[in-house]
Write a protein that binds this DNA or RNA. Structure first.
Lengths: 349, 349
DNA sequence: ATGAAAGCGCTAACAA
DNA sequence: TTGTTAGCGCTTTCAT
């Protein structure tokens, strides 16, 4: 407010109020109880600080206290419904704890991941949540070297606690759901459920495939190897794989488990070429969730990961100072076709 | 690496290398050119620092240099395609400039906005990008008081530069597109385009309505007031408004301009009740973009805002130290129905 | 109930 | 080419 050039510091307030920097510091950092500041002094200092538009310098405070007030999270990508939902929960829950959230994206590059973690360490973040890392162990080692408490989310790490979706439970539910809707089809090879998309080497996909197989087995029809098409996440690859399958079967399979939204995008580019009747012969489900996917031409069962729960569990692990490599699993929810999921933020647009 | 308890500082490196802190500082902050450090000294210091796992303390550096290396952005919500896309661009472009991006969400609350800006000021961010603020002017005043360079994005502010989508151009294109696709319909009131969703008081919506009207006029059929239903963004409100319109017209309007994805979600909950034929009598378009919306039961023209361009323009304004309240407009793109837009990150899932 | 002074880790004059 | 030193803004003993 005043036309000065430098920012107001506690020394300015001390001068203006006729007290000492340490008193001002105590008042302005909420330690007036411990230091038995006279109410009058406290009020005066607070008034003067407000008038001067004082704002503490957190770099200085952090340097002195050896606590920055920052908490970091790395994600592969902001532009992704799952990760941006994690970001939202991380952000909200950080602020509830009086911490400032710093989110950085790494574009699924192992080098960028390391660079980013290094930067966050330099800024003295107090803990780190590592989501969907391509190289969890390298990052874990960096955190250990910097004595930085950390938790893995989505993709688990080896030497620190992890929080993951209960992929098995979600995939099992979803598979049972589409098996229940699966129409009877004459053609033998078409009359089975197929799993499409993802990479079998991925932790999450591997568990989902396990559950898919288990549910098939429990339904009395164990899955053959050719029923699992883990052809990656890239939409165009999935489109090709699906097209080939369609050709081989002479139609859509009677049930289709699509592993995640990106593969679903790929599948869509094939689906749009088909007549509406084609979907009467197929029960389709997808892991992960998108509101508009709920309203596609055909009914689509989806599994929605509990992002708020994943992040809450991560904070719990950090706060309980857990360092053993436990794995906490959080159950996802099944979303019925033609349903708009209403989350806590749904009305905020 | 070494089992010490404190983090390694330049003093440790100085001792280990037999040189002075200032020399170490010069080497480790890349100033070895300015200070003419002997190559041998430089190499030794670098080696020792690497061995010790040294990482600079950015709080101390920032305090001393009065430059934190942080750049802030506030958005209403992470959990939103448009804003998370802005985040991605902001993040990527910050890192290209050697800055650390700090993104905070405000949940569309004016109080939270102010609190968050205050916090970012405390952390000495070097500049701030304010996206979709509910109270731009209050935030602008705070930034001015803190001498913090800032730019508004999406929703413009009064006393600082702003970057916005060319809402007029986008809405004009979209209106012309659906007018061109508009089927001939007997019923007079049905045979017209309608505008649905958003709030007429909003800057963006107001400009879109202007363009909608202009395109109607240019097509020789000026819009009546009842053709504009700016009933808010909340899905359920839009659903109600659309249902009422449908009832009044005895069917869908021949052309429908849906203002943004949230209203589209609301419209969907009405659309799913209709038979497929209903959509043959209506040309539908929406401002904003979602990949799955591209594959709904009916062809949907969409307008995709150029988020990377918006952010690039914001950085330009900051770097050119512009402080006048100019408004830079960035053109959006039309996305054809049944098209998957392929952005730079599309393959990263 | 309050003040004086040291020091967090770093950089930038100024010396040498 | 390198070292010495002051000080960024704050908190925290230790005095008083």
């Amino acid at each position: 407010m005043a036309g000065s050039n430098r920012k107001t510091t506690i020394y300015d307030i001390a001068r203006l109020s006729g007290s000492s920097p340490s008193t001002v510091s105590a008042v302005l950092s909420g330690k007036s109880g411990v230091r038995r500041i006279k109410d009058a002094t406290r009020e005066m200092i607070e008034r003067i600080a407000a008038e001067a538009g004082y704002s503490p310098n957190m770099q200085a405070r952090g340097l002195r206290r050896a606590r920055s007030g920052l908490i970091g999270m790395i994600i592969p990508l902001h532009e992704n419904r799952f990760f941006s939902s994690l970001s939202q929960s991380f952000d909200t829950q950080a602020r509830e704890r009086g911490l400032v959230p710093v989110i950085a994206s790494t574009l699924r590059s192992p080098e960028e991941e390391k660079r980013v973690v290094g930067t966050l360490v330099s800024y003295a973040i107090e803990s780190l949540i590592i989501c969907g890392a391509t190289d969890p162990d390298a990052l874990g080692a960096m955190c250990d070297a910097a004595r930085l408490p950390h938790v893995f989310v989505d993709l688990p790490g080896k030497n620190a606690p992890s929080v993951v979706t209960n992929n098995y439970a979600g995939a099992h539910l979803l598979t049972r759901k589409i098996l229940a809707r699966m129409p009877r089809v004459k053609h033998k090879a078409r009359g089975k459920p197929y799993f499409l998309g993802g990479s079998a080497r991925d932790y999450a996909t591997a568990r989902r495939i396990e559950a898919f197989r288990a549910a098939c087995r429990e339904a009395g029809a164990p899955a053959e190897p050719e029923q699992v098409l883990a052809c990656g996440y890239a939409p165009h690859k999935v489109a090709v794989a699906l097209e080939r399958l369609h050709k081989r079967l002479g139609g859509l399979p009677a049930a289709l488990f699509i592993n995640s939204m990106n593969p679903l995008e790929g599948a869509m580019s094939h689906f749009v070429k088909l007549p509406a009747e084609a979907f009467k012969e197929s029960a389709i489900g997808a892991f992960d969730y998108d509101p508009f996917a709920s309203y596609l031409e055909f009914p689509l069962d989806m599994v929605r990961q509990n992002t708020a729960g994943l992040i809450a569990a991560a904070y719990d692990l950090l706060e309980s100072k857990t360092t053993e490599p436990v794995i906490v699993e959080v159950d996802p929810d099944l979303v019925e076709p033609r349903t708009l999921y209403r989350g806590p933020m749904s009305n905020l647009g």
